[in-house]
């Protein structure tokens, strides 16, 4: 006699939300840092919020993919899970590269003027195109200082391209 095996009843397998939430969290972590968390020294200098987001994302993906494989009759995501996990890992690696390596590739500026040395003079154009010398900036009265000369200049060199 043939033993007839009963075909498993087609059950609708549940949506594996952990995989997708983890993936979205990992992908959102990168723009969230550069567009928002860099505004505050507390979350910018050591990006702990961003790494926390990656940690939570990693945990969600780990649990989600684990369920997809161990309990594939109930949870979906055997194909999508590993793909999204790799993409999330890629986002974390990119973030680590950008903040731990790329942003530190600055020239050393060994001959930059030191404390106690004379600051090199300069004559440069302002936003209206008028030429301004450092000596003028030091001798011209300051706004909001009732005609007094400044005690000093704060020179801020920045990368530009805004």
């Amino acid at each position: 006699m043939n033993r007839q095996e009963k075909a498993p009843a087609p059950v609708k397998r549940g949506w594996n939300w952990r995989i997708w939430t983890g993936f979205l969290l990992a992908v959102a972590a990168v723009p969230a840092y550069f567009l928002f968390f860099t505004r505050f020294p507390l979350t910018r200098d050591v990006p702990w919020v961003t790494w926390l987001m990656f940690a939570v994302a990693g945990w969600l993906l780990w649990v989600g993919v684990g369920r997809a494989f161990a309990n594939s009759g109930v949870y979906r995501g055997k194909i999508a899970g590993p793909i999204l996990a790799v993409l999330s890992l890629g986002a974390a690696v990119f973030f680590g590269y950008a903040t731990l390596y790329a942003s530190r590739q600055l020239p050393e500026a060994v001959s930059a003027p030191r404390v106690g040395e004379k600051a090199p003079d300069f004559t440069l154009a302002d936003t209206r195109g008028s030429v301004v010398a450092m000596s003028t900036l030091l001798s011209e009265p300051m706004p909001g200082m009732e005609g007094q000369k400044p005690r000093g200049l704060l020179l801020v060199f920045y990368r530009g391209y805004w």
Binding site: P113, K118, L153, L154, L155
Partner: peptide, 21 residues
Amino acid sequence: IARPAEFLVDASGVVRWRNLT
């Protein structure tokens, strides 16, 4: 381009503080 840096220069043109990140 310029690398980021800040200097405080006093009225006689001498550097009194600097920050080279």
